[in-house]
Design a protein around this nucleic acid. Sequence first.
DNA 1: GTGGTCTAGACCACG
DNA 2: GTGGTCTAGACCACC
Lengths: 121, 121, 121, 121
Amino acid sequence: MEFDKNVPIYIQIMDEIKHRIIAGTLKAGDKVPSVRDLADELKVNPNTIVRAYQELERDGLTETRRGMGTFIKGEGDLRGDKLKEEIGLAVARAFVQKMHDAGINDEEIISIIEKAIAEKN
Amino acid sequence: MEFDKNVPIYIQIMDEIKHRIIAGTLKAGDKVPSVRDLADELKVNPNTIVRAYQELERDGLTETRRGMGTFIKGEGDLRGDKLKEEIGLAVARAFVQKMHDAGINDEEIISIIEKAIAEKN
Amino acid sequence: MEFDKNVPIYIQIMDEIKHRIIAGTLKAGDKVPSVRDLADELKVNPNTIVRAYQELERDGLTETRRGMGTFIKGEGDLRGDKLKEEIGLAVARAFVQKMHDAGINDEEIISIIEKAIAEKN
Amino acid sequence: MEFDKNVPIYIQIMDEIKHRIIAGTLKAGDKVPSVRDLADELKVNPNTIVRAYQELERDGLTETRRGMGTFIKGEGDLRGDKLKEEIGLAVARAFVQKMHDAGINDEEIISIIEKAIAEKN
DNA sequence: GTGGTCTAGACCACG
DNA sequence: GTGGTCTAGACCACC
């Protein structure tokens, strides 16, 4: 895993975990790597991992059991699909707001998005 | 004007200027407020305004004429519409990237955007 | 049984035993569940149960008889009522201290408590 | 300021700030000492102060303005009295719950509290 | 073994 | 000057 140096590493680790939940690689009840193991693997300081895990817990995505490790929290409705929807919608709302602020109207938004997508492929 | 504390104030000021150009409040040749005036108006450190103006100039949107102030640069194609397109596309590109990272595919992007728009109205 | 993750599990298990004594479910001379049984029941590491039992014994609430198990110790004054009083007073002392620290005076404490009680019913 | 070594220093710092808000020593809009200054004063690592301030912000009690410092956030209703009430009630709720769990009824709670208060004075 | 906290000291962007 | 992040390494309680 490579880090974008413009965004805090702990945020990128959180994102990675979220992506894995969405992708289904991590499911409710699964154990996440221990702080030390992941720190070694990512060549990152353990404190950085701790912080990422703590923030994930604050977000209600994981649960830590003392002395046992950190686990994906998934009581029924926090499955990948739900999370994907949540994240996606939150990001989309911010995006639409930004576009409106820039004086771009709804139809223009759609057409610009399509342009951006076409461009990427 | 209220600032989003997650993004540098000078960036937000740059955005504000751009929005005014798009909206037509500021047109090519117009004089932008003096550093001191704008600092007072926005209750912000003058240095912050200076930096915003410097970056706007670097972006080719303004030009400073010695002893006269800072002006909107308007040589032909830097009119509002062009700028609007430019900003919009840049924001859209970042947005599409973020959605892809989250495992959301192209059709889903469109549908989520439509949902976000509908929700706002 | 669900655990409050801010307090050690072995403490919570001790509390549970104490509550059972107060409630009368466990009486002097009764045998406490075996370490293995309780560990299974509570889905907890056996070491944790061992520690809870050790501390209960240190507190004089139980005694272990070699090869026979752990029993509620009941010599005269360690009946439920006495224990209830003891626990209650200890908890109350800590509570009053915390409220004083927060700048809440004695009358306010009583009135807040009454509010909290009313709220619960 | 002396620290109780059983509770995290950053929590104790948070409590201290809360107490000062309740006492009126810190009012809405006031600037809290800079991270470095407070770290020097308390002979504590700056990171510890940073964490305390960040958690206070998460709790909505303070606001940090980039490059300017950390300030008490107080839009109308988060004055000392309100906070006092909030903290007090939260603590009281937990206390009442604990007492009920221990099989102590409402009247007993009041009488025990009075005993604990009398004992302190 | 696990996570939680702290120190010491560094570098960065922002105002 | 300010806060934000990170590393390196330590100690602790808990399971």
